[in-house]
Structure formats: C-alpha cells, structure tokens
Design a protein around this nucleic acid. Structure first.
Length: 287
DNA sequence: AATAAATCCAACCGCACGACG
DNA sequence: CCGTCGTGCGGTTGGATTTAT
C-alpha cells in the first residue's frame, strides 16, 4: 500500500495559475506567511490548488526579487563550476545566484547552457572524428550518438573542472559544500611532497585514464573493476557522486554498443581535449 | 500564409528525508 | 523503533511560443 496522496487530485485545479489565484496567494503569504503548513494554506484562502502547487508557485514565481531569464556570463560560469563540483544539486546552485530559483537554473541548464557547451563541441567532433569512421553503419551511429553526447558533455565538464582549480571556485561554493570537500581533500593520501591530492582533480585524471585506456603516470589499474568485480583503487577513492557519474557513462556505453568504446579511441580523446580548450576560449572562459 | 519542427518554461509527479507523536 | 505527515528536491511533461520550411 503506497502512501496517501498529499491532496485530493479530483478536487484540485491543475495547470497555469490565473492572476486572481496569484493575487490571493501572494496577499495571504505576505500578510500571514505560510504558517508552516503548505497543505492547509490553499483551504484557508479558498484556492482549489494542491499545497505543493502553491508552494512551487510562490517559490518560483511570486516570491519577491525573483529574476527571470537573462542569465549573465558570470552566472553561466557559476552554474558551470558548481555543476562540475556538485552535479545537479539545483537548489544549492540556485542559492548562489540571488533571485534565481532552482527550477529556473535547471531549465536554463537543460535548454541553453548544456547546448552551449555541446554545440561547438559537436561541430568540432563531426569535423575531426566521425569523418574518419564514415564507413561505420548507420545503426552503430544511431546507437552511439546519445552515449557520445553524454561523453562529450562529461569531457567538457572535466576540461572546465581542470581549468577551475578548487581554490579558484571555492568562493562560489556553499559553506556546506566547502566543508564537505575540505574533508574529502584531507582524506586523500598526501603525495610525495606531502600535499593532499584534491579529490576532484584526482577524479578527472582517473576518468580520463579509463576513457583512453591509458594508466595515469605512476598509477595502476585503469578499469572500474578488477576481474573479481571489486572496485579498483582509483574508483574507491572517488566520492559518491563522482563514482556514480563514472559508472553512469561507462556502463551506458558498454550496454548500448561495444562499437562506442572502439570509436572512442585514444586519438579522438586527444582531439577532444584540443577542441574543448578552443571551445571554451571561444565561449570566453579563460583557461 | 500555412504548417511543421524546435524550443522554452511553468507546472506536475514521485521519491527521499526529517520531524513528530 | 515505527508509522505518518509535510516539505524539499530533481526529473519529466505538456502547452505556448518561436523559428524554419
């Protein structure tokens, strides 16, 4: 037996909000607040809306000082750097952008920023890489496109990641995340100079080595798991989200087609990185 | 001008989590 | 400890709008 729904779906109105509904909600909250109970709020003011819907409307639209659209370059950079660091934690990312909502940031990322990152990369990729595999079957191409796109994005983000050192982006990080990463950093074994390796930097090296099949200098295994299904050391060192991300795209390719792995040869990765840096210079990011 | 395709974004959905009895 | 409830969050959907043909 599942949990009871938060409201009677038969009796609540759905879809776009009318100006009257907006006015009612805004006026009540500005006067009384939510009284700590969104579920009861619509009943109090005679709105035929679900409490969750009221909350969302207030947070994403009616709340004072909300900004819509017109993201600046600076905001782009903040979103990118935080996405690299913490992934799709939209509420945390949005908290660093005054006047922006998580929904707004998420939509902006999904509709524009992601394409901005992928767009120039795609063009470069088609010019330099896929042409050399023009005799591959259409089927194989179709199978690999989405995986390649994910990889492209991952590579873009890794390139950005390495261009934003931890110290450079730390001012953008929410205090909680900074603490998390500080802990993670100090948890890394110190190198020969006695300096702890930043976790995220380490992940980038590990990911790259797995894509290319080359071991990072002085390191051992390059696969996610050893023969016995145990995680290799470089994967064990990663934090949860990085590891999850790594498994996500590596498994995606394996599952869809072995051809994808073959297409993603070392030479193409080199070309990728070369192109990535060009792309980001074009986009105005100083590397 | 008409239509199709692409894009955008507000809103919905379902899950996870913490508070509380 | 367990079950219930409210809240917050990220992913997804679908209608409106814009752009391309």
């Amino acid at each position: 037996m599942g949990r009871a729904p938060c409201c009677d779906k038969e009796k609540v109105k759905k879809g776009p909000w009318s100006p009257e509904e907006d006015e009612k909600l805004k006026a009540y909250i500005q006067l009384h607040g939510t009284a700590g109970n969104w579920i009861a709020l619509p009943h109090k003011i005679g709105l035929k809306r679900c409490g969750k819907s009221c909350r969302l409307r207030w947070l994403n639209y009616l709340r004072p000082n909300i900004k819509h659209g017109g993201f600046s370059e600076e905001e782009d950079k903040i979103i990118c750097s935080l996405f690299i660091s913490i992934g799709s934690r939209w509420s945390i990312i949005a908290a660093q952008l005054p006047g922006r909502t998580d929904n707004d940031v998420k939509n902006y990322w999904n509709t524009k920023l992601k394409k901005k990152l992928l767009g120039t990369r795609k063009q470069y990729f088609s010019n330099n890489k896929l042409s050399s595999h023009s005799n591959s079957t259409d089927t194989a191409q179709a199978l690999t496109n989405s995986a390649i796109e994910k990889l492209q994005l991952q590579m873009q983000l890794q390139a950005l990641q390495s261009s934003f050192s931890f110290n450079n982006v730390s001012t953008l990080w929410p205090p909680m995340c900074i603490e998390e990463v500080k802990v993670a950093q100090t948890a890394q074994p110190p190198n020969e100079n006695g300096v702890a390796t930043p976790l995220l930097e380490g992940c980038a090296v590990n990911c790259t080595s797995i894509i290319t099949g080359k071991s990072p200098v002085g390191s051992g295994p390059t696969e996610l798991e050893d023969g016995g299904g145990r995680e290799v050391e470089c994967v064990k060192e990663m934090d949860g989200s990085s590891k999850e991300s790594l498994y996500w795209w590596s498994n995606d390719i394996d599952a869809k087609s072995a051809v994808a792995t073959k297409l993603w040869d070392t030479a193409s990765v080199d070309l990728q990185f070369e192109g990535i840096f060009k792309d980001f210079q074009q986009l105005g990011y100083s590397l």
